[in-house]
Design a protein around this nucleic acid. Structure first.
Length: 858
DNA sequence: CATAGCATAAACAAGT
DNA sequence: CACTTGTTTATGCTAT
């Protein structure tokens, strides 16, 4: 260590207490950890080449996930007719198939982020060491997936890149990325060292990283400073000094729960420079190293060897491994821990710790590596106070300036840092620059003891002080927030309450700025919600974890409910359709069938509050099914009308009966046929989309059969069976003026119409012999024939969600994968009107009122 | 209108 | 004694 930190000696006031977050408890890390894992905590986020980015993403996703925890499908009540119900059955089955895998994925993620995580987790082994990995992976995958999900929310899943998402969120992560990347390059060992980290960066979401994020978020000035100061060692730029300096990295803000605090260096009482912000301090005989990142690697570094990163170089002694030990902040336990990676082990408080073991680093713990002893010192109470006061950051400082009360305290806590020596000076400068601006006021360095304000009330932020993106309360329930937090930060042993607080603050910075009170809710949730459970005991409190089984169960049920709801919705729709249909018929009977038909409103249109994406999504699903059914019904009705334009003198009543029966028959038969064929999904829908001509044939046959039945054979063929292919329909229409009315809406119908009539009664023996089996062919994997452009179906019925394409796709999807075609023209007509919700996607909208109110408070 | 879920508070009990 | 951590109970809101 080149560093000259010697100037500083352990003089500083020893920390008497660990930061609040850290508990003194002695829990050790599981001994299993092997050198490689040393980064357990880090291991968690191996991939995040950019810790921050990842963090942000994670946060973003977490939010997203959280936001849509409950997608519910709704379905109408049971249908009356069995055919309908059958239809529904098919549909419901189909639903699964209907959704493209992507859809499912997205939904799933949106709905049950945790589930996803679980799934992922399941695939992974579970020992201590790997646990972290899990989380990591989970997170990552989650992140990726969620990204997709997020993307889809807007439009296409998967299209959006993480960065994009970030941008949306305006998270600073983006900015950070480059840095991290560089960082990696510079200190390959760190990243590469971790076997677990799959090539991705290994940086953790340690508080440090978090801090980084914050820095950026907080304010520009700070940003610069922070970057430079805080991560000097890591950053590519800042070469000379940085490199040499042993690692005096100085994170600027101790955020929220992070332990980082300031050390007062008695020796340098130079005033402003008497303090250094750090999470902890390592007092060596000849120098002092301030732990300002959540991960510090201690080892031996040869002069020219930069292949691996060493934050604290213990010299050339071979008894010291290149990466001999690592001190890191375990977010899960809220403590600093020491992982021994060096083959010769180390002594911690006079106890030998062998390689692969991780132990907690208590305040003032004595550590000896090789022949080099040092003491790990946590910040003292002052630090605590400071912390308590608030995260010292630009914002708080500013505020402080404005508010005298706190000002005093903050100032004390924040006083500038004296830098140990040499290189560090630059840092100092930087800091000074920063700090002066913010903290400036009282260089008063009071002896560590101050009158001590009774209790620094938590700082109250004004709206302006809060980064815009963090002004609104995250959507999602506390249980979701907690779940996200645990998934992201929890160690296998669980997470302490304070750790959870910190995690939540990290994931949802809103909680860094909002007034206290939410902690109570968190506690309330932890103990009340079965999704959480006490994993292990730590000192006074418990380490909390997720009750995966329960969660899984809950998810299942939710899903079921959703499905049930969806079915109901469908049923309702169908019912509605039927009713309409009947109405139509009646109307027809009365004389203006056509009119009635035409008038049949496409969809009831559900009013959508578009509150959250979730809801939107849910609705979308419901709608999808409902719409599909509706569309189908409408289509059938229309076609029937068209087919029976020529009533051949039958009277209204008779026609009504015929139509009703024909419809029922068609539905029934098609459904049956499909069922027997094992076809999932709504066969009618599929048919409409893929082979409307055939469906027309079926309808025609059904009509004839119904006619025969109703008229007792007096009329055998109401509809002439057209040849399958047919085309020129126009004539027909022209012929009968009435028709024209019928399809004002859809051009698509024309085809059908055509098919329906003209041809010589071709094939179908129609009438009585309505052979269901004949339908089978329609369900064959696919018939190339189908109708192209104007898919009648669509045309006829307005689709609901113009907004989200994904969904629309989902609905037609119906059966086999098809291209279903185009939604063409017609679709447009109806759809547009209602849709809705999608727009809302933005999310976040949420409780503006509450937040603002609260925040504004003063 | 009743109900389920949540969010919040707050009172208390236990540990530290 | 001051806190932190957990439990419980009560109350109000909102969406269903």
């Amino acid at each position: 260590m080149e560093t000259s930190v010697d100037a500083l000696t352990p003089s500083g006031p020893a920390a008497e207490d660990p930061a609040e977050e850290r508990h003194n408890s002695d829990e050790h890390r599981s001994p299993k950890d092997e050198p490689e894992n040393f980064g357990e905590p880090f291991a968690k986020k191996p991939s995040r080449s950019n810790s921050q980015v990842a963090a942000d993403e994670a946060a973003a996703e977490a939010k997203r996930l959280i936001d849509d925890p409950n997608l519910k499908l709704e379905i109408p009540d049971s249908l009356d007719h069995e055919h309908f119900s059958k239809l529904l059955e098919l549909d419901s089955k189909n639903d699964d198939d209907l959704f493209s895998s992507t859809d499912l994925l997205e939904h799933e993620i949106a709905e049950h982020p945790e589930k996803l995580a679980n799934d992922i987790a399941e695939t992974v082994p579970t020992d201590d060491a790997t646990q972290h990995l899990h989380s990591l992976e989970n997170l990552e995958s989650l992140g990726k997936l969620s990204e997709e999900a997020g993307g889809d929310v807007h439009s296409n899943p998967g299209t959006e890149s993480p960065s994009k998402i970030k941008n949306e969120n305006q998270s600073p992560s983006v900015l950070v990325d480059p840095v991290l990347a560089d960082d990696r390059a510079i200190h390959p060992d760190i990243y590469n060292s971790d076997p677990l980290s799959t090539g991705a960066g290994t940086r953790e979401d340690t508080p440090a990283s978090i801090l980084e994020d914050k820095h950026e978020l907080l304010d520009d000035q700070k940003q610069d400073a922070s970057t430079k100061l805080g991560y000097v060692s890591l950053q590519p730029p800042l070469p000379e000094n940085a490199v040499n300096k042993i690692e005096i990295t100085q994170p600027i803000e101790p955020n929220s729960e992070l332990p980082m605090t300031e050390f007062h260096d008695g020796a340098n009482s130079e005033t402003e420079q008497s303090k250094i912000s750090a999470y902890a301090r390592l007092d060596f005989q000849s120098f002092t190293f301030y732990v300002q990142t959540l991960q510090v690697i201690i080892g031996r570094r040869s002069e020219n060897d930069f292949s691996h990163k060493v934050d604290v170089n213990l010299g050339p002694s071979k008894s010291i491994s290149r990466r001999h030990a690592q001190i890191f902040y375990n977010f899960g336990t809220g403590r600093f821990e020491l992982s021994i990676m060096g083959k010769n082990g180390a002594f911690v408080d006079d106890t030998f710790v062998e390689r692969g073991i991780t132990v907690q680093l208590k305040n003032k713990a004595k550590v000896q590596i090789g022949q080099i002893p040092f003491q790990f010192v946590l910040p003292d109470q002052e630090g605590k106070e400071k912390k308590a006061i608030e995260p010292v950051d630009a914002i708080s400082l500013k505020t402080a300036l404005n508010n005298n009360n706190k000002l005093a305290e903050i100032s004390r806590s924040v006083t500038p840092i004296p830098i140990p020596s040499g290189e560090s000076t630059e840092l100092k400068d930087e800091e000074l620059k920063d700090q002066p601006a913010k903290k400036k006021t009282p260089p008063k360095k009071k002896e560590k003891k101050e009158p001590k304000a009774p209790k620094p009330p938590k700082k109250i932020y004004t709206l302006e002080e809060i980064p815009p993106e963090y002004r609104t309360k995250p959507t999602g329930s506390y249980s979701n927030l907690i779940t996200a937090c645990l998934r992201k930060f929890s160690s296998p042993k669980g997470m302490s309450l304070s750790g959870i607080y910190a995690g939540i603050r990290e994931l949802f910075p809103y909680y860094k700025y909002c007034p206290d009170g939410w902690q109570s809710s968190v506690r309330h949730n932890l103990s009340l919600n079965k999704s959480f459970r006490k994993v292990s005991k730590e000192g006074k409190g418990w380490l909390w974890g997720l009750n995966e089984e329960y969660i899984a169960e809950r998810e299942k049920q939710k899903k079921k409910q959703a499905e049930a709801a969806a079915e109901k919705a469908k049923a309702a729709q169908l019912k509605l359709e039927q009713q309409q249909q009947q109405k139509a018929k009646k109307a027809a009977e009365s004389g203006s069938m056509i009119k009635s038909v035409a008038s049949i409103p496409a969809r009831p249109k559900v009013k959508q509050p578009n509150i959250s994406q979730t809801l939107a999504a849910n609705r979308a699903d419901r709608k999808a099914t409902a719409d599909a059914n509706q569309r189908t019904m409408k289509y059938l009705q229309e076609q029937l009308m068209i087919l029976t334009k020529d009533r051949k003198g039958l009277d209204k009543h008779v026609m009504a009966s015929i139509l009703t029966q024909a419809l029922a028959m068609t539905i029934n038969q098609v459904t049956q046929a499909a069922k027997s064929k094992g076809i999932t999904g709504n066969p009618l829908t599929a048919l409409i989309d893929k082979n409307p001509q055939h469906l027309n044939l079926i309808l025609a046959a059904a009509v004839n059969a119904a006619t025969v039945k109703v008229t007792n054979g007096s009329v055998k063929q109401l509809v002439s069976m057209p040849p399958p292919t047919v085309t020129a329909p126009q004539e027909r229409r022209a012929a009968s003026p009435s028709t024209s009315n019928i399809q004002p809406t859809s051009g698509g119908t024309s085809n059908l119409v055509a098919s329906a009539n003209p041809g010589p009664a071709a094939t179908v023996k129609s009438s009585e012999s309505f052979d269901p089996t004949s339908l089978s062919k329609f369900f064959q994997p696919k018939q190339p024939s189908r109708v192209p452009t104007p898919s009648p179906a669509r045309s006829v019925l307005p689709l609901k969600r113009a907004s989200s394409e994904t969904e629309s796709s989902s609905d037609d999807e119906s059966t086999s994968g098809d291209e279903s075609g185009s939604a063409d023209s017609d679709a447009s007509d109806g759809s547009d009107s209602d849709d809705d919700s999608s727009s809302s996607s933005g999310g976040s909208s949420k409780g503006s009122s509450s937040d603002e109110g609260s925040s504004d408070g003063e």
